[in-house]
Design a protein around this nucleic acid. Structure first.
Lengths: 334, 334
DNA sequence: TCATAGGCTGCACACGTTTTCAAAAGCTGG
DNA sequence: CCAGCTTTTGAAAACGTGTGCAGCCTATGA
């Protein structure tokens, strides 16, 4: 190891380690020349202060914990990228932990963050279990949730306005002239699914279209189930002329089975996604979707956390708006 | 804050804090009943040991630093996911930092890791600057590189065998009967590009095909430049009947312009990618590509690092093999 | 009953900082 | 030349944990 400490510097500079500490902090308490001399020596000796020793006395680690279901999810990765950006800009380092949506692991993660004495926590998991939540709040540290279920139970979070966005997506289809519009949801019971479904229904109602339960099927947010769901829709007679999908991944699956059936998007069926993942603009045809400001959401969440860390009490939840991105997977029905 | 310490427990248990420390470590030095009593009290008081205090005395933080260009890159995210998995299983927490390939930021990151006294470092950046490297090795901590340039200058790394894999990809095209096979590379000068190009040339040579410089163009590993590159290839007369792309992202761009020209994959042009990103199986047609065992590479890298942390000196670089995944973007030429 | 060994426990120091408090040194004005 | 003030420095405690060492207690055997 052999890392040099403040005392080592003190020894060669022939001052006390207190003076060294002050010199390195540009404290006005130490004579200018001495300070410069000390700083020079520190530089020469390749000194790097120990954050761990500092943390012990200041009781701040300048560290935050980020828990995600899996960083391999492109949506989450983008959010985390935004988080990390502003965290780093403010001198915070981020601990990353995957929970894999496994309750045991979630608890392990929270404990590890607790023991590491992180200053704050950011959570972007699709749902947080009640138990998990208890462990979280037990550690008296600011917590900010991103797109989480049951935000009300937590104090702070940044959320996408699912209802408005899905209404916009559905409206778009209605305005193109579609009347038989299906919805492929996420697993039943998930809050974001419920909200997106609500937006879909609202749009239908406002347009005077009667809601038809047969046009609503559920996937699990991944392409495979999106395929299954789409197959069920295509088995209907007549099949829908447009489909609004819970997310882009689901749309990807839907798109594939539509093509496998020899049908065309958007000529035979219009398709709308949600998220605007990178791939959405590279599908064939490029996918009309709702853009979530992913990186921005990460940034805002971290900024909110910073406010809390500064002791400022700020708004409870920040609402972000999705944006309808019209590409080429939607067109008027035949 | 009000977090309870070992001394608080000692007070209520009416023992010294040393005894508490030993009891919590299941040390045989403390009487069984006392130990149990202490552990019960600790439990009741909601005690969580402070990793920072412990680190200070043990001089180990059980922490590793992972530096990536950007976690938003799906390839990298998958690798990191593997890293985090085994790190967590072994009680290590991971600090994640994006360098954005910005030299200043790279240096900042390394300094921050140094100050945090991470036990080891994992780097998965496309290239590490020389300067950056100096800073890295300055801190006398085990470092493992993943798919990095100039691995020779570092001691330990895990690498994909680019040459063999690209040769396999190109062979596949040759065996289908293609004779006019193009290569769209990454930015010129990158080692991975050089290696993949080498594999391509080797395959050509072994098949007795003469190498034609006009069939080699460069992108930047992203779809946009892949499009430009493909346009240049389509301007050739005759254009190639098959294209091997540096990576899937590039292939994505190529695929798009091929379609925009009214041509079809694989009927008019065969296309091969590299990486096997998730999207590769959801393009139209699904993309033939070389699978890199991304998560596995992350796991192996972390395992290697763990060995080094245990003081075992192990092999210098671990070579991983890519796997040719044949989907539907390749077929015999017309 | 006493010496002794072995099982438990506490004392004290260390880790590398920050920070309070006291004291030394330097300066000013009379 | 000295009182009193300001500037600069050092000593010491604290943060929470781990651990070597000394010493206490108890049981055992003579």
């Amino acid at each position: 190891m052999s890392s040099v400490s403040i005392k080592d510097i003190a020894r060669v500079a022939k001052v006390s380690h207190s003076t060294v500490s002050r010199a390195l902090h540009n404290s006005p308490l130490v004579r200018r020349e001495t300070a410069e001399r000390i700083r020079r020596i520190a530089e020469e000796m390749g000194y790097r202060p120990s954050a761990v020793a500092r943390s012990l006395v200041t009781r701040k680690t300048k560290t935050i914990g980020v828990v995600v279901t899996t960083i391999a999810d492109p949506f989450i990765a983008e959010v985390v990228s935004g988080i990390e950006e502003v965290a780093n800009d403010h001198g915070y380092s981020v601990f990353l932990a995957n929970s894999n949506a496994d309750p045991d692991r979630e608890i392990k993660v929270v404990h590890s963050f607790h023991e590491r004495r992180v200053d704050g926590i950011l959570v972007t998991a699709s749902r947080v279990g009640a138990l998990y939540m208890d462990h979280l709040s037990e550690m008296k540290v600011p917590i900010v949730l991103i797109n989480n279920q049951h935000p009300g139970e937590f104090v702070h979070s940044v959320m996408i306005d699912n209802v408005t966005a899905s209404r916009a997506a559905t409206d778009h289809l209605i305005q193109l002239g579609h009347r038989r519009i299906a919805y492929i949801g996420d697993q039943f019971g998930y809050q974001s699914d419920t909200e997106r479904f609500a937006g879909y229904r609202q749009a239908l109602e406002r347009a005077g279209l009667t809601f038809q339960p047969e046009l609503v099927v559920h996937g699990d947010g991944k392409p495979e189930e999106g395929m299954r769901a789409m197959e069920r829709l295509l088995a209907l007679s007549p099949p829908p002329t447009a489909v609004f999908c819970y997310n882009d991944m689901t749309a990807l699956g839907a798109l594939r089975v539509i093509r496998m059936r020899g049908l065309h998007v958007p000529e035979d069926i219009s398709l709308v996604g949600f998220d605007d993942l990178f791939i959405a603009s590279y599908t064939e045809p490029p996918l009309t979707t709702i853009r979530q400001p992913k990186r921005q959401m990460g940034r805002r969440a971290m900024e909110l956390l910073l406010q809390l860390l500064r002791g400022e009490n700020s708004q409870q939840t920040i609402w972000m708006q999705g944006e309808l991105i019209i590409r080429h997977s939607t067109a008027p029905p035949r």
